[in-house]
Simulated scan of single mutants.
Amino acid sequence: MASRGLMRLAERRLKPFGVGAGQIPVFYLLRNGETMSQRDLARLARVEQPSMAQTLARMERDGLIRRVPDPEDGRSSLISLTKKAVAKMPALREALHAGRAELLEGFSDAEVAMLCDLLLRLNRNLDRGVLREIAE
């Protein structure tokens, strides 16, 4: 329920900017002018390749990313953010920070720190579980 609620909140906050919550990992991973392949983006964002392909197709349609041929792999493209996407980043960051404040209302600083620690540990455990499943 918390995950779905977080996604709804993020979608509501980002909609005025023409950005979906699923696109935020791409913005984050490419934020400093980086270029990456679709495969690397999917791996780092921890999503399946088809999901990343759909996300990137929408972002390309909306003028938020550009693809250039990978000089080391002719079958692959390197993806980067466009100037349009970079220009949206401060407003996106502000919208998400406002959502975070709304979400954590009534929590003390110590409780927020504890929540972050617990979620990081939960994610590490989930990652180990996924790796075990792959190995089996």
Rank of each mutant, 00 (worst) to 15 (best):
S3P: 10
R4E: 15
G5R: 11
L6C: 08
L6Q: 11
L6P: 01
M7L: 15
M7T: 15
E11W: 05
E11H: 04
R12T: 12
R13C: 03
P16F: 01
G18R: 03
G18K: 00
V19S: 08
V19W: 04
V19Y: 00
G20I: 10
Q23M: 07
I24F: 05
V26C: 06
F27M: 01
F27A: 05
Y28D: 12
Y28A: 14
L29D: 02
L29C: 06
L29K: 02
N32L: 13
N32S: 15
G33I: 05
G33V: 06
E34A: 09
M36N: 07
M36K: 10
Q38R: 10
R39L: 11
R39K: 12
R39P: 09
R43G: 04
R43I: 05
R46Y: 00
Q49I: 15
S51D: 15
A53R: 09
A53I: 07
T55G: 03
A57E: 10
A57F: 05
M59S: 04
M59P: 07
E60C: 02
E60Y: 03
R61L: 14
D62P: 02
G63N: 07
G63D: 01
I65L: 02
R67W: 06
V68G: 00
P69Y: 04
D70T: 01
P71K: 02
E72H: 10
R75C: 12
R75L: 14
S77E: 10
S77I: 00
S77Y: 12
L78S: 02
S80M: 09
T82K: 04
T82L: 03
T82Y: 02
T82F: 04
K83S: 13
A85Y: 06
A85T: 00
V86D: 05
V86C: 03
V86S: 06
A87F: 01
K88F: 07
M89P: 03
P90H: 00
L92C: 01
R93V: 13
R93W: 13
E94T: 11
E94M: 09
A95R: 07
H97P: 08
A98E: 15
A98T: 11
R100E: 14
R100D: 12
A101P: 01
A101H: 13
E102A: 07
E102D: 06
L103G: 00
L104C: 02
L104S: 08
E105S: 09
F107V: 08
S108C: 02
S108T: 13
S108L: 06
D109A: 15
A110K: 13
A113E: 15
A113Q: 15
A113N: 14
M114S: 14
M114Y: 14
L115R: 12
L115N: 05
C116Y: 14
C116M: 13
D117E: 15
L118A: 15
L119N: 10
L119W: 12
L120E: 14
L122A: 14
N123I: 07
N123S: 11
R124W: 00
N125M: 14
L126W: 09
D127N: 00
G129I: 03
V130Q: 05
L131H: 09
R132S: 04
E133W: 04
E133Q: 11
A135R: 10
